[in-house]
Design a protein around this nucleic acid. Structure first.
Lengths: 220, 220
DNA sequence: ACCTGAACACCGTTCAAGT
DNA sequence: ACCTGAACACCGTTCAAGT
């Protein structure tokens, strides 16, 4: 008589995320997750092929919470992009330890695909042409990924910025002055300031039709 | 009679980098590096406190090759930023497996500090004010980091893009159309297109003095 | 002082065995 | 069918010992 499955993928993912939130990404192991669930290590392999797939489940648990409902058309396109980017950043930012996992597993995540689809729709709506859309989407994704990592690593009690503040001002005049100022700028302000830079650039590209490849890549 | 040191830090770093270039970052281990050098594993601990410090040496070996000579003033400031960003991307791009290491060890790298100092000088030269400089520098660093990772992961025989091309066009119309086009856009074009977006945004910020925090953060 | 090898506490995963 | 525990081939690092 077949015993019923005692575990769902969701429970597995939650247990793994709990381990990560408690002990960091370095603390994630098949053994740790099994202990978290009160099962033997090998029992996990009933539900998952290998560690890689467990990681995929964690990524999907976190990214699956990103609201991918398109913002209303009454919001200007730049505002809509800001909303979508903000949602992604908030979800990942709530579990910054998983950032390295999202990088490796991003292409397989339905949530990221849905998110990308909505952002592309907004960009197309705004009037960006084919080649520009690709560049803009990768630019946005690249910015979010990079910024979240800088933020996460740079703010572990900000060892970087503190160390930089202590640099010899004669050899690094700009850097030490900037580090002083950087401490007064919050992470949110930094993030939205950089995003603003990107969006301004996009709007300008839109205005003068730049960003097309030199050979005049066709639009479809 | 004290034996002479048989190893320099540079040799150690080269051996580790050789392991990484051959077997990937996952193949890096104290044992692997020791074997590469023909020594016992524990001999490495004569030269390095722990694995973390070995990684730091690798990062410095790669980033130390970045030319941080400021480009001549005859080049417009945007061009100078492009040159500096390009140098960083080229060095890291030559050993993409180390990207995760640069993230963790970046704040301790003299090479990155020198690079940042030069870029900040260019930005100050261009007329960006204090708060804007911080945002612009982090924006640039974030973009490079994110873009290099997307490029590296996304181009391992491009499993992501290929998978995306195979998506059901009815559920992901924008994405599948975009994936088709993305295959015709080279990595360099993507990178410089995104960078161009950022630089346009910076130039615009410069023009109208935006990016200052709401409370009017003073310039020094 | 430099280098070694055994040992400890960890990994992911395979495999044979229990219910 | 579901779950277990021993075992294998790995880690980083400590420690005592050799030259």
């Amino acid at each position: 008589m077949p015993r019923p499955r005692s575990l769902t993928h969701a429970q597995l993912a939650s247990a793994a995320l709990a381990v990560i939130d408690r002990d960091g990404l370095a603390g994630l192991s098949m053994r740790a997750v099994a202990k978290e669930l009160g099962m033997s290590t090998m029992a996990l392999y009933r539900y998952v092929d290998d560690r890689d797939q467990l990681e995929q489940l964690v990524v999907e648990l976190v990214l699956g919470e990103v609201d991918t409902e398109p913002p209303g058309p009454e919001v200007p396109w730049r505002g809509r992009v800001e909303i979508m980017v903000g949602r992604l950043r908030d979800s990942v930012g709530a579990h910054p330890e998983i950032v390295p996992l999202t990088l490796t597993h991003r292409h397989r995540s339905p949530a990221v695909l849905r998110w990308s689809e909505v952002v592309l729709t907004i960009l197309a709506d705004a009037g960006l042409r084919g080649g520009q859309q690709v560049i803009a989407l990768r630019g946005l994704l690249g910015y979010v990924i990079g910024a979240v990592q800088l933020e996460h690593l740079g703010s572990l009690s900000a060892p970087g910025t503190v160390a930089i503040s202590a640099l010899p001002p004669d050899r690094f005049p700009q850097l030490s002055a900037t580090a002083q100022r950087a401490r007064r700028i919050g992470a949110d302000q930094e993030f939205s300031g950089g995003l603003d830079m990107l969006l301004r650039g996009m709007a300008e590209m839109l205005a003068d039709g730049a960003g097309l490849p030199p050979d005049g890549l066709p639009d479809r």
